[in-house]
């Protein structure tokens, strides 16, 4: 599904003492099957932007087109179109409410008016997609799960609606390393196997470079930089101007370059970086 955002502006509390222009004339185009990273400092408008993309917020001005259908058109009932964009909110486990995991995941599909049979099929399938064994988890209470498992169940609840775009907002925040790895692996597989369009918000640049193809950097409600991941993360200075630091490996490489080593900066793979550093150490000019 192609997403086009045209001149999106969003103002919180217009006319109030704390009026805030969260987004300011943002235009963006995301093609079918892309994996896009959305980064920026806290308060740069990332979460507002994705809530506009799934129609839960209406822009103050501008519009959002999903495959050419205007999501901001007040005259049309858009709730079904909107559900094609699955948004996993920050700390999505706080939305779990049903008595069993299966019931909770079934909430979305039921709201779509699907048959009981179709609903249970989707519950099984979504559990498998997030890597939870249905037989083990189906009947458990969501409140007895670990933090990482809860979050996977919450994601399954979104996947069960078969969204054509998946948006995840700081999906690994507050999880242990293993929980993080599990979730990122699942999202990567979803993108690769189902050709799902994925938009990922994250503060962890290492996470971003290990997954996404294209990055959009927001600063104070405007697009500060965008482009291919390797390209955006090779320019330390302009990135710093957007309030973003390099991922760990490019940071190390960049420090070495400043110390006189001759190395490329935009390498994100540990092994590759280690090989280059070793090569330079043995044969280089240092």
């Amino acid at each position: 599904m192609r997403i086009e955002a045209e001149h999106l502006t969003y103002i919180y509390g217009p006319g109030l003492p704390w009026e805030k222009r969260a987004l300011d004339d943002v235009s963006l185009r995301i093609e079918e099957g892309e994996f896009v990273g959305l980064v920026g400092e806290t308060g740069s408008g990332k979460s507002t932007l994705v809530q506009l993309l799934n129609g839960i917020l209406r822009p103050t001005s501008g519009r959002v087109l999903l495959d050419g259908v205007d999501l901001t058109d007040r005259r049309k009932p858009i709730w079904k179109a909107r559900l094609q964009v699955g948004l996993v909110f920050q700390f999505p486990e706080s939305q779990l409410f049903a008595e069993t995991v299966a019931e909770d995941i079934a909430f979305g599909p039921r709201n779509l008016g699907l048959s009981q049979q179709e609903v249970s099929k989707r519950v099984e399938e979504s559990l498998l997609k997030v890597g939870l064994e249905p037989a083990l988890f189906r009947q458990r209470s969501p409140f007895t799960l670990s933090g990482g498992e809860k979050r996977l169940v919450a994601i399954a609840g979104i996947l069960a609606m078969w969204p054509r775009v998946l948006i995840v907002d700081e999906v690994t925040a507050g999880l242990d390393p293993r929980g993080k790895r599990d979730i990122l692996t699942r999202i990567k597989l979803l993108h690769r196997n189902e050709r799902a369009t994925v938009i990922m918000i994250s503060h962890d640049m290492d996470e971003i470079v290990s997954l996404v193809e294209r990055v959009v950097v927001l600063k104070s409600g405007r697009i500060c930089r965008q482009g291919q991941t390797t390209e955006v993360f090779s320019d330390e200075e302009s990135l710093a101007g957007c309030g973003i630091r390099l991922p760990t490996i490019p940071q190390i490489l960049s420090s070495l370059v400043k110390a006189g080593w001759r190395l490329p900066v935009s390498i994100f793979d540990v092994r590759e970086a280690a090989r280059l550093i070793a090569q330079e150490y043995h044969h280089g000019t240092v």
């Binding site: 706080s94 979305g108 709201n111």
Partner: peptide, 29 residues
């Protein structure tokens, strides 16, 4: 509320009974 509407909860559409039922999904969390 936003999260549940994103899961298609009938909080902003349908008749009053449908909406009320949707509210269980808000009240418990």
């Amino acid at each position: 509320v936003k999260a549940q509407i994103s899961r298609g909860a009938p909080l902003d559409r349908g008749n009053i009974f449908r909406r009320l039922r949707g509210f269980v999904a808000v009240l418990i969390p």
